[in-house]
Amino acid sequence: MDSRNHSLLPVGVRFRPTDPQLLRYLNFKIHGLPYFKGAVLDGDLYGEMEPWEIWLRFGGIAGEHLYFFTKLKRSTNNSGRLSAHINRKVGLANGTWSGENSGSPIFATKTDKQIIGYCKCFRYENIQLPQHHGEWFMHEYSLHQDSIHQVVDSDYVLCRLSKHGRLKRKLPKNLELQQHSKKRITAPRSTIGQDIMSNMTIDQDFNL
């Protein structure tokens, strides 16, 4: 993960894409098409770096998000072949991205109910590090299969990383009991129709 690959947005401009627009970025990425590279970075959110290390290295700001193209990592079965299961471990401290197994559908527009992709919500889980447990959230965007044609690399997803310390749960005293009674975690859902940028659109200003 290259720490020099920081956001190249103009000073004072915030990147506020809608869900369908994020899928357009992902579509350009996996099909090898040109796109504005100043806002969505290349990084490994399923690698050896912890979420807070990624946040610091790429200049994360409280209340904002960081966006990454990252590759899914599939587990291997007993015969050594790749399986359909995705390995969502992160870092070297036994942490994992825990959350949804199925994503919420994203439609082309508010009136066009064609499904163009999905968004899954995850939260960082690691009871061995209570100062970070439940503090980091990730929304993972993937394209609908019908939108993938002769791709360069179909394992890419687009991830939105954010920090929400105020939503962190209080850990129970008996950590062993929690390990055996772990419940499904839900994160704030992404919304369609967010403000993109003040008086600007991605299409117009970044020539997508």
Score class of each variant (00 low, 15 high):
Lys29Ile: 00
Ile54Glu: 04
Gln21Asp: 03
Ser83Gln: 13
Thr96Trp: 07
Leu129Pro: 01
Ala108Met: 04
Asp44Thr: 08
Tyr156Asn: 02
Val11Trp: 01
Val90Ala: 00
Leu33Ile: 05
Cys159Phe: 08
Arg57Phe: 06
Ser83Ala: 14
Asp2Thr: 02
Leu175Lys: 14
Arg74Cys: 02
Phe28Pro: 01
Phe137Asn: 12
Asp153Lys: 02
Ser75Asp: 08
Arg166Cys: 06
His144Leu: 01
Met49Phe: 10
Met49His: 08
Glu48Thr: 15
Gln150Leu: 06
Glu50Trp: 01
Lys182Asp: 05
Thr70Tyr: 07
Asn174Phe: 01
Ala108Asn: 03
Arg81Glu: 15
Lys170Gln: 10
Arg74Glu: 06
Gly103Trp: 13
Leu8Ala: 08
Gly193Asp: 05
Thr70Phe: 09
Asp146Cys: 01
His144Val: 07
Phe107Asp: 01
Gly63Phe: 10
Ser154Glu: 15
Lys173Arg: 02
Ala187Asp: 08
Thr111Asn: 13
Asn78Tyr: 11
Thr191Asn: 12
Gly95Pro: 04
Gln21Gly: 00
Pro20Cys: 04
Lys183Ala: 03
Gly38Tyr: 03
Asn87Val: 07
Lys71Met: 13
Arg123Ala: 11
Arg88Trp: 09
Ile115Val: 15
Asn174Lys: 12
Ile148Phe: 03
Ser83Phe: 02
Leu26Tyr: 03
Gln21Phe: 05
His133Gln: 06
Ile202Phe: 11
Gly117Asp: 01
Ile86Ala: 07
Met138Gln: 02
Pro105Glu: 03
Leu72Glu: 14
Met49Pro: 02
Ile106Arg: 00
Ile192Ala: 06
His144Ala: 15
Thr76His: 09
Arg14Ile: 08
Asn78Trp: 06
Gln145His: 06
Phe68Tyr: 12
Thr109Gly: 05
Asp205Glu: 14
Gly47Leu: 12
Phe206Asp: 12
Met197Gln: 04
Thr186Pro: 05
Gln114Glu: 07
Ile54His: 07
Met138Ser: 01
Cys119Asn: 09
Asn5Cys: 04
Val11Glu: 05
Leu129Ala: 05
Gly63Met: 14
Arg189Asp: 14
His164Gln: 05
Pro51Ala: 04
Leu9Ser: 09
Gly165Trp: 01
Ser162Leu: 03
Ser162Thr: 04
Asn199Val: 11
Leu175Glu: 10
Thr191His: 12
Gln131Trp: 06
Leu82Tyr: 15
Asn87Pro: 10
Asn101Gln: 11
Asp195Arg: 10
Arg16Thr: 13
His85Val: 14
Thr201Val: 00
Ile106Tyr: 07
Gly134Asp: 11
Leu208Ser: 09
Phe15His: 06
Ser7Leu: 04
Gly59Gln: 10
Ala39Ile: 12
Trp55Asp: 07
Leu167Asp: 07
Trp136Arg: 13
Arg16Leu: 15
Asp44Glu: 14
